[in-house]
Design a protein around this nucleic acid. Sequence first.
DNA 1: AAAGGTACTTATCAATAGGTAAGTAATCAA
DNA 2: TTGATTACTTACCTATTGATAAGTACCTTT
Lengths: 184, 184
Amino acid sequence: MPSTKDKIVQLADEHIRKNGYNAFSYSDIAKTLKIKNAAVHYHFPAKTDLAEAVIHWHIENFENFKERLREKDELLQVKTFLNFYNSIQLSGKICAVGAFATDWNSMPQSAQDQVRIFSELIIDWLTEVLEAGKEKKLLTFDAPPRTEALKIITNMFAATQLARITNSDDFADVKNAVIEELTI
Amino acid sequence: MPSTKDKIVQLADEHIRKNGYNAFSYSDIAKTLKIKNAAVHYHFPAKTDLAEAVIHWHIENFENFKERLREKDELLQVKTFLNFYNSIQLSGKICAVGAFATDWNSMPQSAQDQVRIFSELIIDWLTEVLEAGKEKKLLTFDAPPRTEALKIITNMFAATQLARITNSDDFADVKNAVIEELTI
DNA sequence: AAAGGTACTTATCAATAGGTAAGTAATCAA
DNA sequence: TTGATTACTTACCTATTGATAAGTACCTTT
């Protein structure tokens, strides 16, 4: 069973990615876990500590994700990456990077630094996967690998946000178009 | 000189797109305009009224934007659209749709409806421009027009957010890659 | 058995949030 | 010239926010 501390991080993550960083409070979490407000402060003295922990959790998750995919071929790696965003969209959340980007200017630098590390981690990983996939003739694209990675990431990233507003077909359309373009 | 009411809308827009919907308060606006809190409530009784006015303002702006570009060729229309996001990025803001998408679940339905109208307006416009541009052989792309429009919009949309986190070159790279891909 | 840490609760706080009711000064229409 | 309308201010209110200090119950370790 996860510890209270872990539960707080998970709940905070859900709140942040469902309602935004500034729309959740300590009591939201306390009520759900049926503990007192101060108990949350015991584990995370300030809200920014909690924000940092959430991003740290994402960084660890992504490292695991990378590790699990290491031996697979590049097309499958990209597809799995896209499916990951698909599941985010289905659960009504958005990407953590997007959630923090909106509230960027109301976040302390320590948390900003963590988000920056997380973002670069994703971009660098996808850049390398695309590069390797192109060399092995598994993937096709014309832009430089990092630019292509940015294009795909921004597609996924914003599609989860847009799908909230329009309808979920839009997400699937974009996702399928990305795969098609890479495999022509 | 703009009326107080207009100034409030403009300031609210700036706050929303710089810090997020939930990160700004009536007193932020009141202080800047050197009026009292209650004066803002006089023009916009509830915060959601202000949010609606902000989106309404964007809808009007976009209608003007469309009108100004109507006679131009499709490539120029797309380029102008992309440059518009470029200026958003340079001013440290993000797209209004993105700002509201993050805080979507903490917004009242009346405001959600307005955002939905605004989003569809942009998507429909770009879809038509792309379609016409392809017919005239000014633009090339393989996906259905709406999907291609979604791809470009999500690129711009999230690139302004990502550029906050990484660096501004990323935005230009994505923008240029989008144009190149459409004009091969 | 004593001491110390861990994981909380109780109680409290100042600041800010969004919001309202009542008053006022200036303009405008009849 | 009166009455209404507009654009505010003054003065409040309640709820919530993030946060802290002090206490407590329960394990460990020595």
